[in-house]
Amino acid sequence: ETWTVFRRYSRFREMHKTLKLKYAELAALEFPPKKLFGNKDERVIAERRSHLEKYLRDFFS
């Protein structure tokens, strides 16, 4: 099953920080790092999307 969620990266990062405070075991999940430069580059966006998808798969498993 596939879901499509339209949210900004910052909202996922905020969710991760909030949940990590409540559920300490989530700290073990690696959240994709923020890029200061090149964040509009298609390659960077695709890489971030891939890392975010892995994070979410790990989160829900």
Rank of each mutant, 00 (worst) to 15 (best):
20 K>T: 00
58 D>W: 14
61 S>P: 05
54 K>T: 10
4 T>S: 12
51 H>C: 04
29 L>H: 04
23 Y>T: 04
33 P>K: 11
58 D>F: 11
48 R>D: 07
30 E>D: 12
43 R>I: 06
45 I>P: 14
11 R>L: 09
26 L>H: 00
50 S>R: 05
18 T>Q: 15
7 R>G: 13
46 A>D: 10
28 A>I: 05
47 E>N: 12
46 A>T: 14
42 E>G: 14
22 K>W: 14
53 E>I: 14
54 K>L: 06
1 E>K: 06
25 E>Q: 10
44 V>G: 13
61 S>Q: 12
50 S>W: 12
20 K>H: 04
50 S>T: 09
38 G>R: 08
9 Y>I: 13
53 E>L: 15
19 L>C: 02
56 L>Y: 06
22 K>H: 01
22 K>V: 11
37 F>L: 06
27 A>S: 09
43 R>N: 13
50 S>G: 08
38 G>T: 09
41 D>A: 13
18 T>P: 03
59 F>M: 06
31 F>V: 03
6 F>E: 07
5 V>D: 07
42 E>W: 14
22 K>G: 03
53 E>M: 15
61 S>W: 15
35 K>N: 11
18 T>D: 01
55 Y>L: 13
22 K>R: 05
26 L>F: 13
28 A>W: 07
35 K>P: 03
30 E>C: 15
55 Y>D: 02
42 E>F: 14
9 Y>D: 03
26 L>G: 02
7 R>K: 14
3 W>D: 10
14 E>T: 02
19 L>M: 13
42 E>Q: 09
18 T>M: 09
30 E>P: 10
54 K>D: 03
31 F>G: 00
16 H>Y: 13
38 G>N: 07
17 K>M: 05
19 L>W: 08
23 Y>N: 00
36 L>D: 02
3 W>Y: 04
35 K>E: 01
22 K>T: 07
39 N>P: 08
11 R>S: 12
36 L>E: 02
46 A>M: 09
5 V>K: 15
38 G>H: 08
8 R>T: 10
27 A>P: 05
18 T>L: 06
10 S>K: 05
26 L>Q: 00
6 F>H: 03
10 S>E: 01
48 R>C: 08
25 E>N: 10
4 T>P: 08
9 Y>V: 10
1 E>Y: 03
41 D>Y: 11
50 S>C: 14
10 S>T: 13
58 D>C: 10
50 S>I: 09
20 K>F: 01
43 R>E: 06
47 E>V: 07
11 R>N: 08
59 F>W: 10
13 R>A: 12
37 F>G: 05
41 D>H: 10
52 L>C: 05
26 L>K: 06
21 L>V: 12
36 L>G: 02
12 F>R: 00
41 D>L: 15
43 R>D: 05
56 L>H: 00
3 W>V: 03
4 T>A: 09
4 T>F: 08
32 P>M: 13
39 N>V: 10
54 K>A: 06
25 E>I: 05
57 R>I: 04
50 S>V: 04
48 R>K: 09
19 L>G: 00
46 A>Q: 10
49 R>M: 03
26 L>I: 09
18 T>E: 06
54 K>W: 03
49 R>E: 07
6 F>K: 04
3 W>L: 03
43 R>A: 11
56 L>P: 05
59 F>P: 02
13 R>C: 05
45 I>V: 10
7 R>V: 09
33 P>D: 00
20 K>M: 01
58 D>H: 12
11 R>K: 15
3 W>Q: 01
9 Y>M: 13
60 F>C: 06
26 L>C: 09
50 S>L: 09
38 G>F: 06
54 K>R: 11
31 F>I: 02
58 D>L: 09
16 H>A: 12
37 F>C: 02
57 R>M: 03
3 W>G: 11
6 F>A: 06
16 H>V: 15
31 F>T: 00
20 K>A: 02
8 R>A: 15
1 E>D: 10
17 K>Y: 02
9 Y>W: 11
30 E>V: 15
36 L>F: 10
2 T>I: 12
19 L>A: 01
42 E>C: 11
7 R>A: 11
8 R>S: 12
22 K>Q: 01
33 P>S: 11
47 E>Q: 07
28 A>H: 02
21 L>S: 14
18 T>I: 15
44 V>M: 06
39 N>R: 11
32 P>Y: 01
19 L>I: 03
8 R>G: 12
29 L>A: 13
15 M>F: 09
57 R>A: 04
15 M>A: 09
52 L>T: 04
59 F>C: 04
23 Y>G: 04
48 R>G: 12
12 F>I: 11
46 A>W: 07
30 E>H: 07
45 I>S: 14
32 P>A: 11
38 G>V: 05
29 L>K: 06
33 P>A: 11
5 V>T: 12
17 K>A: 05
9 Y>T: 07
49 R>Y: 01
7 R>L: 10
53 E>A: 13
27 A>D: 04
3 W>K: 09
59 F>V: 08
33 P>Y: 04
11 R>P: 08
30 E>I: 15
15 M>T: 03
10 S>D: 06
6 F>S: 06
14 E>R: 02
30 E>Y: 15
61 S>A: 06
24 A>L: 05
4 T>W: 11
56 L>G: 04
29 L>R: 07
15 M>H: 04
49 R>I: 15
28 A>M: 04
53 E>N: 15
32 P>Q: 06
54 K>C: 01
35 K>L: 07
26 L>D: 02
25 E>R: 05
25 E>V: 03
57 R>P: 09
56 L>I: 10
45 I>F: 13
14 E>Q: 03
54 K>E: 05
41 D>K: 11
43 R>L: 05
23 Y>L: 14
17 K>W: 01
27 A>I: 08
33 P>Q: 04
23 Y>D: 01
24 A>M: 08
41 D>G: 11
8 R>H: 07
10 S>C: 14
11 R>Q: 08
49 R>C: 14
14 E>F: 04
46 A>C: 12
19 L>V: 02
19 L>P: 00
18 T>V: 10
52 L>R: 03
39 N>D: 13
23 Y>F: 15
42 E>D: 10
50 S>P: 11
20 K>P: 00
28 A>C: 07
14 E>V: 05
8 R>K: 15
46 A>N: 14
17 K>G: 06
57 R>E: 02
57 R>D: 01
27 A>N: 05
31 F>K: 01
26 L>W: 10
51 H>Q: 10
27 A>V: 09
5 V>L: 11
49 R>V: 04
15 M>Y: 14
41 D>I: 15
12 F>P: 06
57 R>Q: 01
13 R>F: 13
39 N>I: 11
31 F>Q: 01
37 F>I: 08
24 A>G: 03
23 Y>Q: 04
21 L>K: 15
28 A>R: 10
21 L>R: 13
2 T>G: 01
52 L>I: 09
55 Y>G: 10
43 R>M: 05
44 V>T: 14
44 V>C: 15
43 R>W: 07
59 F>N: 00
4 T>N: 15
14 E>M: 04
28 A>Q: 06
53 E>V: 14
43 R>V: 08
47 E>T: 12
33 P>C: 11
36 L>K: 03
22 K>D: 00
2 T>V: 07
42 E>T: 12
17 K>V: 06
45 I>L: 11
36 L>A: 04
3 W>N: 10
48 R>T: 04
50 S>M: 01
6 F>W: 09
30 E>L: 15
44 V>A: 11
10 S>R: 04
8 R>I: 15
12 F>T: 00
36 L>Q: 00
16 H>L: 15
5 V>R: 09
41 D>Q: 09
47 E>S: 12
56 L>W: 07
37 F>V: 07
24 A>E: 07
60 F>T: 01
25 E>L: 03
45 I>Y: 06
19 L>E: 00
4 T>H: 04
29 L>T: 08
56 L>V: 10
22 K>I: 11
3 W>T: 04
13 R>E: 05
28 A>Y: 00
51 H>G: 14
56 L>T: 10
52 L>E: 01
11 R>W: 14
37 F>Q: 03
16 H>N: 05
41 D>S: 11
